[in-house]
Amino acid sequence: MSQHRAGPYWLSAPALAVYAAFLVVPLASIGLISFQHFEFYGGIQPGLTLENYRAVLGDSYYWEIFGRTFAIAALVTVFCAVLGTLEAIVLYRMRDPWRSLFLLVVLGPLLISVVVRTLGWALLFGSTGLINKALQTLGLIAEPIQFMYSTTGVVIALVHVLVPFVVISVWASLQKMDPAVERAAISLGASQLTVVRRVVVPLAMPGILAGSVIVFALAASAFATPAIIGGRRLKVIATAAYDEFLNTLNWPLGASLAVLLLLANVILLYTSNRLIERRYKAVFAESAA
């Protein structure tokens, strides 16, 4: 009998081992390192201390980076939520073969390496890049817009990368919707716009919120895009942690930045999930037969 009960554990042991080796152990080490002292000429010292956290939380330089990171993430989330929802609704209204084609176009960014895609944006963003040239030719702007090394550029590039996540989750919500509901609203006198505003968007709301949570988490921890578009001038937590690890070699400080970012993300994901579940419990409850 005991052998039977142990069976599942043995079967999942390889997966658990991989999980432990490549996720739990590195994370635990990062956590451990973040509590260790760093000596500029001696490297990491044994013994536990809170000085790294004190250094980060007591320095306005890091507060600014945290503020910038979450401001960018919030902006990206808002843009992605609006754009992604509209895209998903338009896609939902399309017929095949256009629907499949455009779904592929929307999901396209996910198929390309984030570095390649961001370098593409860098080409477009330059002061003599395609976007600025076009806007100047059209006479819309006199001076080139500063996209590179600016929040605007980082937000645009991140929105492009992350919008598919909102599209996918809103799309999933819309698939669950009974198409007759829209007709019901029309039969009661609603215009197309009212149908979208009063029926489609509220029904897609769980998808919009779920997608936004994913986008926020990914935008807050994004590395490649802020590193390439934002550069050294526009640091976010991920790039700051990277610099601590690889440039100043202050692993403990970098680790504490990483841990704080992880904590902030986990708290955000957890609370927003709880809120969404509570808000929509009654709407999507099992039918009380």
Partner: peptide, 27 residues
């Protein structure tokens, strides 16, 4: 269709799942 003012009961009822009974009826 939106201006015909006919009362329609759909096969699967097509109620608005995000609205209460009152809000469904007063839509």
């Amino acid at each position: 269709a939106a201006k015909r003012g006919l009362g329609i009961v759909f096969q699967n009822y097509a109620l608005f799942p995000h609205l209460s009974v009152t809000d469904n009826i007063s839509f």
